[in-house]
Design a protein around this nucleic acid. Structure first.
Length: 399
DNA sequence: TCTGGGGTCCTAGGACCC
DNA sequence: TCTGGGGTCCTAGGACCC
């Protein structure tokens, strides 16, 4: 989608959790703040000046910044702040695509008459977040989502960076490859090992070379991004596709017999099922996640015949997966257990083989009745039946 | 003394269907 | 009855993001 001008905003709160803590406790302002216990969930820019980064373990950040103030996370305070910030987003434009708790894309392309230029809108948005929620936020403005995201990253902290259409490649090409959204440690190493350090160098490669290096999808994707081709529109109302919970067990061998692990797993299942029900979601695929002493991971999954948010049903499936994984657990030593339910709201995807075909269409109504009888208040369409597949919504299971 | 908890998307093979 | 092209679903793993 090529636009006339830079009309996509990427709004990203700066050091979100740490900023909320500094907002709520003035004594933390100006200090290196780390949110989290063992691992830094978030850290203030003062801490970043020492080299501390989100995701770092305690051993590492203590060495880098011994004087850091450590604060326990207050998740409810963050989600409240997030809600308030998204209200500002929603007041700005109806086209808001939330990416995470602290960032979103906004399309302000159609608002010039009503609200002014994208730059004016972005400046007002930053001011409104300051005034109403008292948090610093950086906004990147560009013609594509990808470039807006890069711009906010470069513009941080507490900044506003606009990339006009005629400056795009001049802005993009000198940047290091890690700035490309989707280039992580593995891809970065593959590129740098071949002497490719900048986005411009990526753009100089033939697409086939990138595909050979990184595989079909990433090769084509990166090639497009390096040339600033990103047709993805800002999408409203994207729903979560899985809901999960996990728990690190640590390296100590205590409490790692199968019964204890199962008890932990059931606690996680309970949490997940509650979250699903309060969100009004049902899912079909139960996924067991495991991590082992050597940091390797494994997942085992089972797809249920019908979508559910019923605690027992999910627990039984999870328990079976755990039992099947027992040899692996004993052999490799487990350090993390998790459960997720995926295939959310795909309950309509259940397919039924029916004992008739196109040539026996006269029996359609009988088959329809049969399916309805077997699955209660099922919504079955004639079209679905003609394809010899019945899509239906099973009734919600009682909890 | 390399690690938290929550997610997304893509790949690839096998089974099965039309 | 056999073959083949085209497609979906399921499972497992990998990379990446905040």
């Amino acid at each position: 989608m090529l636009r006339d001008g830079a009309t996509i905003l990427h709004a990203d709160l700066d050091a979100f959790y740490a900023s909320v803590e500094q907002r709520d406790n003035p004594r933390l302002r100006g200090l290196p703040v780390i949110v989290g216990g063992g691992v830094a969930l978030s850290c203030s820019y003062e801490a970043r000046a020492f080299g501390v980064r989100g995701g770092m373990g305690a051993g590492q950040w203590r060495k880098l910044c011994p004087g850091a103030v450590v604060v326990s996370p207050r998740i409810s305070a963050y989600s409240e702040a997030s809600k308030a910030v998204f209200e500002v987003f929603d007041d700005t434009t109806p086209l808001v695509e939330g990416i995470s708790i602290d960032e979103a894309f906004l399309d302000v392309g159609g608002l010039r008459r009503v609200s002014g230029t994208p730059i004016e809108i972005a400046a007002r948005l930053r001011a409104a977040v300051r005034a109403k929620v008292d948090l610093p936020i950086t906004v990147g403005v560009a013609r594509t989502k990808f470039l807006a995201k890069v711009a906010s990253g470069v513009g941080k902290p507490d900044g506003l960076l606009v990339v006009e259409p005629d400056e795009e490649l001049a802005f993009l090409h000198p940047l290091p490859v890690e700035r490309l959204w989707g280039v992580g440690p593995v891809t970065s190493r593959k590129l740098r090992d071949r002497g490719i350090d900048t986005v411009g160098q990526v753009a100089g490669l033939a697409q086939e070379s990138l595909v050979a290096m990184l595989g079909g999808h990433w090769g084509r994707h990166l090639h497009a991004l390096a040339h600033n081709r990103d047709p993805r529109p800002v999408t409203v109302g994207r729903r979560r596709r899985s809901i999960g919970a996990q728990h690190a067990l640590g390296f100590a061998p205590a409490g790692k017999d199968l019964a204890s692990i199962e008890a932990t797993l059931f606690g996680l299942v309970d949490r997940v099922a509650r979250r699903m029900r309060s969100a009004g979601r049902v899912g079909r695929t139960v996924v067991l996640r495991l991590r082992f002493d050597d940091s390797s991971r494994a997942t085992r999954s089972h797809t249920l015949p019908r979508a559910t948010s019923h605690t027992e049903t999910i627990a039984v499936a999870a328990s079976r997966l755990l039992a099947a994984a027992q040899p692996m657990i004993e052999q490799q030593g487990i350090t993390l257990v998790g459960v997720a339910v995926a295939n959310l709201d795909r309950d309509g995807a259940v397919q039924l083989r029916l004992p008739f075909n196109r040539h026996t269409g006269g029996e359609l109504d009988a088959a329809l009745d049969d399916v309805r009888e077997r699955f209660g208040s099922a919504s079955v369409t004639r079209a679905a039946l003609l394809g010899r597949r019945a899509a239906f919504s099973p009734p919600m299971l009682p909890d």
